[in-house]
Amino acid sequence: MTSVASRAWSSLFVIGAAVVYVFLYAPLVVTAVFSFNNSDIQTLPFSGFTTVWYEDLANDVQMREALLYSFKVAALSVALAATLGTVLALILDRVAIRGKGVLSAAVVVPAVLPGMVLALSLLMMFRYIGVSPGFTTIVVGHMSFIAPIVMFLILSRLRQLDPSLEQASMDCGAGRLRTFWHVTLPSIRVTVIAACLLGFTLSFDEITVTFFLSGVQPTLPVHVWTLLRFGFTPEVNAVFTLIAAVSLVLIVLAAVLLSGWRPHRRNAPTSAPPIEQPAQTNVLALTYERTP
């Protein structure tokens, strides 16, 4: 290939990449921009700057109730998912039982099933045992897909830990529980916090599972979804923009926490991967969120 031709190819590729970034960000920018547009109709040209949609939002009682409800759901389901996820990770990392390959695949099923299938299977189980849709069902639904994600993050952290630390602790006479409390837990603490932040944004934004499992009181996304199906006010753009801003802050925080840790030194093996490697993988691992 001549250099002229290859340079032409290169610039074509770069232009293509730029187009992809525009494609990825145009919808987000459009929503944010229109949340400040002084008109009921979402069209160009802009009619001027306003914060009236945000004021509407602040005065909207239903929206406030939905927001509060979403917070409660997210807080409880993340707390449960973090506990369960940690326990599951410890089991998969430490306990030697037969059929562990099958077990570790089965454990993550709720996070990889199509959201609708997870929701319907839970919904039918709850109906079968006589639990009507509401707070409990939503929390269980959210917990089901967040716990495997927490587990995934903690498991990859546990595998980086130096086992001799725990052995040393037990050699010094600490029992399993004390060792866990004083040695293992502190070394996975940051990961647990980061996983909680991630789980919170996932729960807060979830619609596919929540829609089927919610009762009379909707969560924020379900409330917005109902608004969108039966008409539309630019207030929705404002709430989207706010949620996006908060999620991004939480995610950046989680990413910083995850990449900030130093991998423990393991007798410096000669073929050690570059130091940045685990951190990088984990920042990207954050995005293994459940499928919608």
Binding site: A26, P27, L28, L44, P221, F240, A244
Partner: peptide, 27 residues
Amino acid sequence: LLVVVPLWVSYLMRVFAWKIILGEKGV
């Protein structure tokens, strides 16, 4: 990271934005 950031933005928002862009009176 810039490519994956949209995953962290509300799913409804990502879908609904296309309605604003492509609608009859859209962008």
